[in-house]
Design a protein around this nucleic acid. Structure first.
Lengths: 241, 241
DNA sequence: TAGATTGTTAATCGATTAACAATC
DNA sequence: TAGATTGTTAATCGATTAACAATC
């Protein structure tokens, strides 16, 4: 394929930028709902929690949708980002694994409000079949092929126990799913062309715990250092922060 | 503070490394449970889903816990990483916001199995007080100060509606919490010294949707390109991928 | 025109990776 | 000693940031 024949929206853009576009989208929606018609890159950057240089650099990958000296039209920019990220239409998704977390996800309004429409709840435990959650019946995992084919599903959310994760992922892929959002804390192996993203809630807590412990250690070190200094230790060029 | 007086565990290590240490910890636990006594960096890297150069580089920030020509003692390395990341002891946490997601989090076994002990469930809706979830009573948010003081809580998990997020965060910080895991899709502003991490499930889906759409666009572009080529267009040095 | 703000350039910073000397 | 594997170096890559020319 030639660069000339490639539509603008198909060009490579940095992953870090891709990950921030949904944040900008949300901030623009909030601005729009607050009745703001126009905003500067600085306004939007504040709303999104980034700095304005980064925001402008990110937007520059999509094209040129602002007006120098003026700023951005909120609704227009929102439309452009939505179109670019594929969020200008609905995505059918399935949720596999209807335990505590799967149920919470089935009820999560943040999916539907952002264009993700849950078309089926699937669980490997056939005993669960027929139970109704968030207005949808729980169906046996064996139904996945027909559900995926019928609704044209390409994105699946997986909230199953770790030991089942790889097996379930294989079945999802076999059924035609090409993007998986994985809530199980396991490394999945999938064929090329299938995208996996992982949400690992306990890893996030562990990262926080590391920084908490560091605060404590630094305090202790400072205390010990104070003692050393009181005893006459001389600070050297090794001194840090 | 001098570098000499600083304990090894208090030295700066890259954020990207910090975020991967819990992954290594989990992989080591799995290896240990499978009865593996020793592993090479390559073994562990495969189990953790990274490449071995990155793994060794990461571990080099903690110290030198392997043996050249041999590899790592699984339990010893696990112990060292746990100690370094502060996961060799229990962390008391509170969960604020006991909706669908908060309830799922209260029941989530992945927290307790990794050293996080939920000491209280708090909700702003006083009607909820007294309800029991995962063996714990739901308590009014007003109890947060006493709970935090009593159990020495520094880490809080927040699963409240977006419109309440900033207010609740302010209360958590006022009560003495210095690390927040935020499940609400909102930008929080907190004082310096307070760490916030965000889990945004719909952003993850949106990133997947972007890549899905790109697959489709690229296919279309390839198709269109094929037509152009059939019509005699000549590929140039601009050709991509 | 003067003031404001974008889009882009270039410098800087941090993370990844391959290669290999050190060493068990 | 020979083979294996770590820990480290140096090169590369990608992301961030500040500064500013372009332009409304």
């Amino acid at each position: 394929m030639t660069a000339r024949s490639m539509p603008e929206s198909a060009r490579e853009i940095p992953e870090a930028t891709v990950a921030r576009l949904p944040v900008y989208l949300r901030a623009l929606t909030a601005l729009s709902e607050a009745g703001t018609a126009t905003c500067s890159s600085e306004d939007l950057a504040v709303a999104a929690g980034v700095n304005s240089a980064k925001l402008r650099k990110d937007l520059s990958h999509l094209g040129s949708y602002g007006t120098r000296g003026v700023g951005y039209d909120v609704d227009y920019l929102r439309h452009q980002i939505a179109r670019f990220t594929g969020l200008n239409h609905d995505w059918p998704v399935v949720i596999v694994g209807i335990g505590n977390l799967g149920q919470a996800l089935a009820n999560y309004s943040g999916f539907s409000s952002r264009g993700f429409h849950v078309v089926a709840l699937l669980d490997a435990d056939r005993e669960r079949a027929g139970e109704e959650i968030a207005g949808l019946p729980v169906r046996p995992l064996a139904d996945i092929e027909s559900v995926v084919a019928r609704h044209g599903v390409t994105i699946g959310v997986m909230a199953v126990p770790t030991h089942a994760a790889q097996t379930v992922a294989d079945r999802m892929v076999a059924a035609g799913i090409t993007s998986i959002l994985n809530f199980a804390p396991s490394v999945l192996s999938v064929p090329a062309g299938v995208n996996v993203r992982k949400v690992d809630m306990s890893i996030e807590l562990q990262i926080l715990a590391y920084h908490e412990q560091r605060k404590t250690l630094l305090d202790q070190a400072r205390g010990a250092d104070q003692v050393a200094t009181d005893l006459g230790e001389v600070a050297t060029e090794e001194e840090v922060s």
